[in-house]
Amino acid sequence: MFIEKSCGVIVYRIQIENIEFLAVKSKANGHWGFPKGHMENHESEEQTAKREVFEETGLSVDLLRGFRAKTQYMLDDGISKEVIYFIGTSSEKNVSIQADEIQEYRWLKYSKMKELLSFDNSKQILKEAHDFLSLLNYS
């Protein structure tokens, strides 16, 4: 079975003592999720994740150590998709979306983000990221 692998980042920021997460809406299918994309030759998972966030949002992110989450699902064409997520933040304030792939973006608090995400596996990854940040006293 062919497995297609992508990597991404759950991007967060602290706004007046609240954590906000970055959601992006795919232009291809209208689904809300996190910035992610395909691995390229000789890239590590972390390199792919950071590159994809930069390409899709214009943000350079710093990844936090100790968080790596994986989800797997089937695509419509029968290909198995594996996505590895990291968590990270950026000191940059301006998001500049990649117009040919991303329709729009939003910064949202955890509860609103959980409502907006299109898939249950994304909601589970968000919960894991939120719990991880809570352990670090970010919430």
Score class of each variant (00 low, 15 high):
10 I>N: 00
99 A>K: 14
21 F>P: 01
46 E>Q: 13
38 H>P: 15
3 I>F: 06
96 S>C: 05
16 I>Y: 09
86 F>W: 05
89 T>P: 00
10 I>G: 02
105 Y>D: 04
36 K>E: 05
26 S>P: 02
28 A>T: 10
53 V>Y: 02
20 E>W: 06
20 E>F: 07
76 D>H: 09
69 A>Q: 10
97 I>C: 08
85 Y>V: 04
12 Y>I: 03
29 N>W: 09
2 F>H: 11
31 H>M: 10
7 C>G: 08
92 E>N: 09
82 E>Y: 02
84 I>D: 04
58 G>K: 09
69 A>S: 14
5 K>G: 00
58 G>S: 11
22 L>Q: 01
52 E>D: 06
46 E>S: 12
77 D>Y: 10
77 D>I: 09
56 E>H: 07
53 V>W: 02
99 A>Q: 13
21 F>Y: 15
35 P>V: 05
94 N>R: 11
14 I>Q: 10
13 R>N: 05
42 H>P: 00
2 F>K: 13
12 Y>F: 15
43 E>S: 06
25 K>N: 08
26 S>F: 00
100 D>S: 12
7 C>Y: 03
21 F>H: 03
2 F>Q: 09
42 H>T: 12
101 E>Q: 12
46 E>T: 10
19 I>H: 01
7 C>D: 06
53 V>G: 01
70 K>V: 15
30 G>P: 01
32 W>R: 02
104 E>T: 13
53 V>P: 00
79 I>V: 15
33 G>N: 04
60 S>H: 14
64 L>K: 07
17 E>D: 14
91 S>K: 15
37 G>R: 04
26 S>V: 04
4 E>Q: 08
85 Y>W: 11
41 N>E: 14
97 I>R: 09
81 K>E: 13
36 K>I: 03
87 I>F: 05
50 K>M: 14
91 S>H: 13
89 T>F: 09
44 S>Y: 07
60 S>G: 14
86 F>V: 06
77 D>R: 07
100 D>V: 08
35 P>R: 04
57 T>E: 02
105 Y>C: 06
9 V>Q: 02
73 Y>D: 07
83 V>R: 09
102 I>D: 01
46 E>L: 08
60 S>T: 14
63 L>D: 06
82 E>I: 06
53 V>E: 00
75 L>F: 10
91 S>Y: 13
100 D>G: 00
46 E>M: 12
79 I>P: 00
54 F>E: 12
9 V>M: 00
44 S>A: 04
43 E>M: 13
78 G>R: 10
81 K>S: 11
24 V>K: 01
80 S>C: 12
8 G>I: 02
69 A>Y: 11
44 S>E: 07
10 I>F: 03
79 I>W: 03
102 I>C: 01
17 E>W: 04
84 I>M: 09
12 Y>T: 05
25 K>I: 07
88 G>T: 03
23 A>V: 09
77 D>E: 13
90 S>A: 10
55 E>A: 11
31 H>F: 11
100 D>I: 08
89 T>H: 01
40 E>C: 06
53 V>L: 03
96 S>I: 11
72 Q>M: 13
43 E>F: 07
80 S>K: 12
